[in-house]
């Protein structure tokens, strides 16, 4: 495995001898390919891609999902491999039934080979389940300058009531279920790029939330966009913003639910969290953080511009 600091290659044995550090520069290794399915360099490259080479803020969850996407790609390749092997095996078994002899042996071998991708897939799924722990360790050892930590959220707040706004009212707002999403959007200047204010359902950012909300309410034709997880909490959030008088309950405003919801499955195909609920029924959820910050910004920006939900955006994402 290559050291991310000095580039020196090391074997598992080398790493064991040097206490999990690079023998040349003492940089600590975080992942072990056999245990985590990833090298440190792969994680670093994922971070670089996520941050647009140091220009875009991202969260811990963004990194987790970025790495998950790597595994999902590999799982997709496993599926393709498995399908090809399966077709070959079926073809060979037909030949074996018709001709026997040599084809029987080949059919048995190919049948056994079909199991290989299945094993690999199972491994990847195990690696995905360990990602939370791996990412926590990674960010404590290698904190990226664009990683949005809790301290940076606080720093981004400012904390004062805005004083320079005169009698300005606001035209549109994107209300997010999670404060982390708001911090991510604000840090990447979503409000500047798309001329849309951003607030969270948890009254974040604290110092300015009330002021911004009051200026939004002054505008009878305000447009309200909602962004949330695909989860019961996400649905409850939408209901709250629509009905709670503290938000827009009782007001006739244009409200557009950007998502996530069940209709947008193609946006997060293969990346949902599946868990059994109390009634032993499979519940599927998806977090908004599964989008990389760049994709989230562009999708939300285009959706706001066109006034439509995320899954209805087409080419507008790439246009200026």
């Amino acid at each position: 495995m290559e050291c991310i600091k000095c580039g020196k290659e090391s074997t598992k044995k080398d790493r064991g001898v040097s206490g999990g550090r690079c023998s040349a520069c003492y940089q600590a290794f975080v992942s072990e390919p056999t245990e985590h399915g990833l090298t440190d360099m792969a994680i670093k490259l994922a971070e670089e891609e996520l941050s647009g080479h140091g220009r875009i803020y991202f969260s811990k969850d963004s990194l987790k999902y970025q790495l998950q996407r790597l595994f999902i790609k590999r799982i997709q390749w496993c599926n393709i491999g498995m399908s090809v092997l399966l077709i070959i095996a079926v073809g060979l078994s037909v030949m074996a039934v018709l001709n026997g002899g040599f084809f029987v042996k080949i059919t048995l071998i190919s049948g056994a080979l079909v199991l290989v991708p299945l094993v690999i897939k199972a491994n990847y799924k195990k690696f995905i389940s360990q990602l939370d722990v791996l990412v926590d360790k990674w960010i404590s050892v290698n904190p990226h300058e664009k990683l949005l930590t809790a301290e940076k959220y606080q720093a981004s707040l400012g904390g004062r009531t805005p004083t320079n706004l005169d009698e300005m009212a606001f035209k549109q707002v994107l209300i997010c279920e999670r404060s982390e999403t708001v911090a991510l959007l604000l840090s990447n200047l979503f409000h500047i790029h798309y001329g849309c204010h951003v607030l969270s359902g948890q009254s974040y950012p604290g110092g300015v939330n009330a002021e911004i909300l009051s200026r939004l309410k002054q505008n009878p034709s305000v447009k309200v966009f909602l962004l949330h997880d695909y989860s019961p909490a996400g649905h409850a959030f939408v209901r709250r913003i629509k009905t709670d008088a503290k938000w827009f309950g009782g007001q006739r405003v244009e409200m557009i639910d950007l998502g996530l919801n069940a209709h947008q499955k193609k946006l997060f195909n293969g990346m949902t969290n599946k868990q059994l609920d109390r009634n032993k029924k499979m519940k599927e959820t998806a977090e908004i953080a599964l989008f990389s910050p760049e994709v989230l910004m562009k999708k939300c920006g285009a959706a706001i511009k066109e006034g439509v939900a995320l899954d209805l955006i087409s080419t507008a994402v790439d246009a200026e």
């Binding site: 940076k152 707040l157 400012g158 904390g159 004062r160 200047l189």
Partner: peptide, 9 residues
């Protein structure tokens, strides 16, 4: 809009 948030980053 930037001014509204007093961002301290």
């Amino acid at each position: 809009a930037f001014e509204a948030y007093n961002m301290g980053m």
